[in-house]
Simulated assay, not measured.
Amino acid sequence: MFSKSKINEPAPKAPEAAKPAAPTAPAAPAPSDYKAAAPKPKPPASVLSSDLHITGNIKTTGDIQVEGSVEGDIRAHLLTIGETATIKGEVTADDVVINGRIVGRVRGLKVRLTSTARVEGDIIHKTIAIESGAHFEGSVQRQDDPLNPGRAAKPAANPAAAAPAAKPESA
């Protein structure tokens, strides 16, 4: 039934040579697939130093840390206003951390005024935090989507207009 010679005989070398060739071909595309799927590392925040003065608008999808002065609007993903910074214009970002001075409107999903913040203007936000010692002159308004004022203002304006009209009729 059993033959010792068949068990102890080495396998033919031609099929072994064919087997490594097959796995090698699929292995080559696999690393390129992983490289394409891997997310790119997030670049560091752009820093505008304290001796820098910018006149004009700044727009980026990345992060900015401002230590100098800007006369113009700023739009970014994460915006950090340093203690020595002065911004004169509208600020719009997903996340705004204010340590310095802003004269103008602030729009952000998350807005944080630290104890050294000085803001003169309206703040439109989804969430806000104001530390003790922060100086703020203006109004605060919560919106679900503060980054897109056209979409959020229209639905808010229609119910507000309808509600006062309904009250005088029933009164």
Rank of each mutant, 00 (worst) to 15 (best):
G72K: 00
G82M: 12
E90Y: 06
I54A: 03
F136E: 04
R101G: 00
I74H: 01
A165L: 09
E9M: 12
T92P: 07
P15D: 08
H135E: 05
V140E: 10
S49Q: 13
R112T: 15
L52N: 06
E131Y: 03
A153P: 00
T127I: 09
S139V: 01
G82P: 10
Q65I: 11
E9N: 10
D51N: 14
I102P: 00
K154L: 05
R75H: 10
M1T: 14
R151Y: 12
T86S: 07
A28L: 13
A161Q: 08
P164E: 11
P146H: 14
A161L: 08
H53Q: 12
G133C: 02
N148E: 10
P12F: 11
P39I: 14
A152I: 04
S132H: 12
L52E: 11
K4E: 09
A153V: 01
P164M: 14
K59V: 01
V111Y: 08
G100T: 02
A129M: 09
H53R: 05
P31C: 10
K4I: 13
D144I: 04
D144A: 10
P20D: 13
S69Q: 14
K40P: 02
E83Y: 03
I102A: 01
K59F: 02
K59N: 02
S170M: 01
R118Q: 05
V70T: 01
K154M: 14
A157C: 08
H77N: 15
A21V: 09
R142E: 15
P168C: 08
A165M: 09
P29E: 05
N99W: 07
S170V: 13
A156V: 14
N8P: 02
S32W: 03
A134P: 10
P164C: 05
I124A: 03
A129R: 05
D63N: 13
R112I: 10
A171E: 14
N99H: 02
I124P: 05
I81Q: 09
S49I: 06
A157D: 14
G133N: 15
H77E: 06
A22H: 06
V140H: 07
E137A: 01
T60F: 03
A153N: 07
E71G: 00
P39C: 05
K88V: 00
S3N: 15
A152H: 06
P164A: 13
I128K: 04
V103N: 01
N158M: 09
D95H: 09
Q65T: 13
S170R: 00
T116A: 07
A171Q: 07
R118N: 15
V140C: 07
F136N: 07
I54F: 06
Q143H: 08
P44S: 08
T127Q: 08
G100D: 03
V66P: 05
